[in-house]
């Protein structure tokens, strides 16, 4: 690839960093309200871990939305399917899960996560071809099709696994906390944060450094021009949809382990949450999605601690506040 040294650079407009600092500002502002330092650390770590998991679940949705303007109200199905598929690996190998060995624990977690991603991704292929392809450009039909798909998926999970909640204990070496002074940091939350950061960095790297990534960013801006340059954007979209579905599946197993249970309604519950995150972040913006997920998780954790009664509406309030400040979300990438 030709790499010329630019002889000159245009004056860069100041980068819009305020949203980046928002989670930090919020966290600092909560310190006096929460009062106790150790509770604050616990809540903050919980927020970060939960935020990263929500980000993993929502990242595919924002790209799908931004790239093809497709409203997928069934995204939560991939989350639930990922969680159920994980039980197929984790429950039969419960011995490894219970073993007091990090390596045995990982040896069962890794294939469970891979299976969750693979099945959710493959399901994404079917859903895109069968439910979404026929209704491109028609929002109302997209909503009907994908909502229908979510209901069918939920019922199918009930039919296959039954209506009961399936307990999914954490592997032994991920239980408990690291204790530093009077601060306790749950091990699993650290792992969730780590995985979230890796996924975020990976997506950013692909978007910034690969031709596929350039095509995705260009397509979010102007898909017609991407086609006029000779690229089949629907094939690109199918790829993005499958990867997004696979990530939702990964988020599903992580969420299930976080809650230590699996239930078919989780897809439904989380769909609302990921949509709020995607809207807060700005359609098609991975960075916005990341910050949005952290904010939603912070509001849930700090809010749940300070004003438990507000827990149910806190996310909606957050969304309204953000949209009043920035009507198209934290980062507006698309022209829509």
């Amino acid at each position: 690839m030709t790499d010329l040294a630019a002889t000159d650079a245009l004056p860069k407009p100041p980068r819009d960093l305020l949203p980046v600092f928002l989670p930090a500002i919020l966290a600092v502002a909560m310190l006096p309200l929460v009062g106790s330092g150790s509770s604050w650390v616990t809540l903050t770590v919980a927020s970060l871990a939960m935020g990263m998991m929500i980000f993993i679940m929502a990242s595919g949705l924002t790209l799908v939305f931004g790239l093809m303007d497709v409203l997928n109200f069934g995204h939560g199905a991939f989350i639930a399917v990922g969680a159920y598929v994980a039980t197929l690996v984790l429950l039969p190998l419960a011995g490894w899960v219970q073993a007091d060995s990090l390596w045995l624990n990982l040896a069962v977690l890794a294939p469970a996560a891979l299976a969750a991603m693979a099945v959710s991704g493959a399901l994404g292929l079917v859903v895109e071809r069968v439910l979404i392809l026929p209704v491109y450009g028609q929002h109302l039909k997209q909503i009907l099709m994908t909502t229908g798909g979510l209901i069918v998926a939920e019922q199918a999970l009930y039919a296959l696994w039954g209506p009961q909640i399936i307990p999914l204990p954490l592997p032994t070496s991920l239980r408990g906390s690291f204790i530093i002074g009077d601060i306790a940091i749950a091990k699993y939350r650290l792992l969730a944060m780590l995985v979230g950061l890796v996924v975020f960095a990976g997506i950013q790297l692909v978007l910034a450094r690969t031709k596929i990534g350039l095509l995705i960013r260009a397509g979010v801006e102007n898909r017609e021009m991407v086609e006029a340059l000779g690229y089949h954007i629907k094939r690109l979209f199918l790829g993005v949809f499958m990867v997004g579905s696979g990530l939702a599946g990964l988020g599903g197993i992580m969420w299930a382990l976080y809650r230590e249970q699996v239930h078919a309604s989780m897809g439904n519950d989380l769909t609302v949450l990921v949509f709020i995150v995607v809207i807060i972040g700005g359609l098609g913006s991975i960075g916005g999605c990341f910050i949005g997920a952290l904010l939603v998780a912070m509001v849930a954790n700090y809010g749940g601690f300070l004003v438990p009664k507000l827990a149910l509406v806190s996310n909606i309030l957050l969304m309204v506040a953000i949209l009043m400040w920035r009507p198209r979300g934290l980062y507006a990438v698309t022209s829509r």
């Binding site: 690839m1 010329l4 031709k211 350039l214 095509l215 960013r217 260009a218 801006e221 102007n222 021009m225 991407v226 340059l229 690229y231 990438v333």
Partner: peptide, 13 residues
């Protein structure tokens, strides 16, 4: 593509 550099626009082209 406004969000892409001059170079990236041409790489895609």
């Amino acid at each position: 593509f406004a969000d892409l550099t001059v170079k990236e626009n041409l790489i895609l082209a």
